[in-house]
């Protein structure tokens, strides 16, 4: 088994530095396996958040060689061989310790988005009727595991730290899932424009690139939401037509 050097950030919100560790890498190992091995062998106080080891809980998000990824889904064989592997915590959120960040800001943002508000039931037993083609588009968004890699790579949060004005791609996916739902009656367009800062997104598609679930965040969620904002605020012709025909 070959030895690989890991350069892992050690520190907290007040500062820190990279520490070097060497560990043996076997066939089929992922980055999280190596981190656990380092914990067991030489750094028992290394803080790392993890849970399912199957790419479904979204806990082990980190920056591997500068790219936001899930540690449990990043195979060592896919990284440059013979070179040190750099591991850092997410940069868009406050560091707690080592590879662990405080992502609770996201939960507050999510709670601020208008909840699912279905229309009255279609039939007397209190249920609704939907067609598959009505719900196909939304099902893509339901794959989100809330790993917040998209939030981390988004430069509006990462570089400009507009956490107070911008909800971030994860919450635009959440809003799109509700807004495009065939049963939903709530209106989120005004809030997306004014409170959630949809206009700050400049569509660089970094969020789509890092999504471990392969959600086409920019094209299927953010741009359609931007177009709904355009419908209401930046399309005078459409407003005129709607005014004339009364719809």
């Amino acid at each position: 088994m070959a030895k690989t050097t890991f350069s892992i950030f050690r520190g907290d919100s007040e500062g820190g530095q990279f520490a070097q560790y060497q560990t043996e890498v076997g066939e089929g190992m992922v980055v999280l396996d190596c981190v656990h091995q380092i914990q067991a062998d030489s750094a028992p106080d290394l803080a790392v958040r993890w849970n399912c080891k199957a790419g479904k809980c979204g806990s082990c998000s980190a920056e591997i060689n500068g790219k936001p990824k899930l540690m449990c889904m990043t195979r060592m064989s896919d990284l440059p061989q013979g070179e040190p592997v750099t591991l850092e915590p997410l940069k868009a959120f406050p560091r707690l310790r080592d590879l662990v960040t405080d992502v609770s800001w996201n939960f507050g943002v999510k709670q601020g988005i208008a909840k699912f508000a279905p229309r009255p039931a279609d039939v007397q037993d209190g249920t609704w009727r939907m067609q598959q083609e009505d719900i196909d588009r939304v099902q893509e968004f339901r794959k989100c595991i809330e790993c917040f890699l998209c939030q981390d790579v988004c430069h509006v949060l990462r570089d400009h730290r507009k956490h107070g004005e911008f909800a971030g791609p994860r919450h635009f996916v959440y809003a799109a899932a509700l807004e495009m739902h065939p049963l939903d009656t709530a209106d989120r367009v005004e809030a997306l424009k004014d409170q959630e800062g949809l206009g700050y997104c400049n569509i660089t598609k970094c969020c789509t690139t890092v999504c471990p679930e392969g959600i086409t965040i920019t094209d299927n969620a953010i741009i359609p939401l931007k177009e709904r904002v355009v419908d209401r605020h930046y399309d005078p012709l459409r407003s005129l037509v709607r005014g004339v025909i009364g719809r």
């Binding site: 907290d12 060689n65 500068g66 790219k67 400009h160 107070g164």
Partner: peptide
């Protein structure tokens, strides 16, 4: 929903062209 997140003094925003990418 906080107006801004509290980042510690040891966590400034990334500097210009700062990165750890190896590609």
């Amino acid at each position: 929903r906080t107006s801004s997140l509290r980042f510690g003094g040891g966590q400034p925003r990334p500097a210009a062209l700062e990165h750890q990418r190896k590609d």
